[in-house]
């Protein structure tokens, strides 16, 4: 039996009036996969997620989710999705536990079963001790974990996470990543958007890089880096007295040099050798950092811009 993709999109388009948010993308997500949409704000990630979530109909193109058509079977598809939106829309009038039990009722889950699942999920997202609290006093990380628990309440086939860790502090992000990783290990299919390359690298088996409504690259994080970038990158910073004609002086060092507003990037197979060459040419940056190439570099190579401005 050939495995049918859970999400299949071809030539998918979303327009709002004259503005084209999603401009003909092709996507296939398979069962059990963690799939990411990486791109800066305004790349069309959220519009894509809303179409997959069946709360926004495509303007054009093919879209099938769980083998069904969102235009006809939206209700049945949504019954099998879990959605964690970009902005928390937890219910401020309900307690933490009631946020889950009430949400379960929208899926037709009986009361006793809803309570059982709520307790189990609160345990899973480490919020059991806050079950009776209202939502408002919770920290950002707790709210996001509760939203993820809410997305799990119908035991969904696919969980959609729109920028799951945006606005969270590093500690909260790591706890969240760890929980999402657990979900992934249980075999839940995750689809997420992010503009953090470290998040994409941590969580995604496969991802597409989006820019201005289009997909500019596709693959696993590793393969994207291998295809579009050198293994290592040297970051040079110069403080206030950045020498003139740096590009001229560094010509031929590594495979490519990118000048950004605050730093200079040298792409090279061997970062240390490239750094040594920089010094040999009499350029003395205030700091030198040799690191492995990341998705951020891939994005920069592909679009000429950084992910987070």
């Amino acid at each position: 039996m050939s495995e049918q993709p859970l999400i299949h999109a071809r030539g998918l388009v979303k327009r709002f009036g004259d503005f084209t948010a999603v401009d003909g993308i092709d996507v296939q997500v398979r069962a059990g996969e963690a799939f990411g949409f990486l791109g800066p704000n305004g790349a069309g990630k959220s519009s894509t997620m809303r179409m997959i979530g069946c709360v926004s109909l495509p303007t054009a193109g093919e879209l099938s989710i769980l083998g069904m058509d969102p235009a006809r079977d939206g209700t049945r598809i949504r019954a099998r999705l879990g959605v964690c939106p970009q902005l928390d829309n937890l219910d401020p009038d309900l307690s933490v536990r009631e946020n889950l039990t009430t949400y379960a009722r929208y899926f037709g889950i009986p009361r006793a079963e809803a309570r059982r699942r709520a307790d189990e999920l609160l345990e899973f997202v480490r919020l059991s001790d806050r079950a009776g609290s209202m939502v408002e006093p919770l920290s950002g990380g707790m709210k996001r974990r509760l939203t993820i628990a809410r997305a799990m309440v119908n035991d969904p086939d696919i969980v959609l996470l729109d920028e799951p860790t945006t606005g969270l502090d590093p500690q909260a992000r790591h706890l969240l990543w760890e929980r999402l990783f657990q979900l992934k290990r249980r075999g839940t299919t995750l689809v997420l958007t992010t503009h953090y390359m470290d998040e994409a690298e941590q969580l995604c088996d496969r991802l597409v890089v989006m820019d201005a409504g289009r997909i500019v690259a596709e693959g696993s994080p590793r393969s994207l880096i291998e295809t579009h970038c050198t293994p290592e990158v040297v970051e040079l910073r110069f403080g206030d007295d950045r020498p003139a004609d740096l590009a001229g002086k560094l010509e031929g060092v590594g495979e490519r040099v990118d000048q950004l507003a605050d730093r200079l990037l040298v792409y090279a197979a061997d970062g240390d050798a490239a750094a040594a060459e920089v010094h040999r040419r009499g350029v003395t940056p205030s700091s030198v950092l040799v690191r492995r190439a990341s998705l951020e570099d891939v994005f920069l190579q592909l679009t000429g811009r950084t992910l987070v401005d």
């Binding site: 939106p85 219910d91 037709g108």
Partner: peptide, 14 residues
């Protein structure tokens, strides 16, 4: 403001 209906409409509710 509370976006309650947004959350509700992400479920099977119409």
């Amino acid at each position: 403001y509370a976006k309650t209906f947004e959350a509700v409409l992400a479920t099977p509710v119409r």
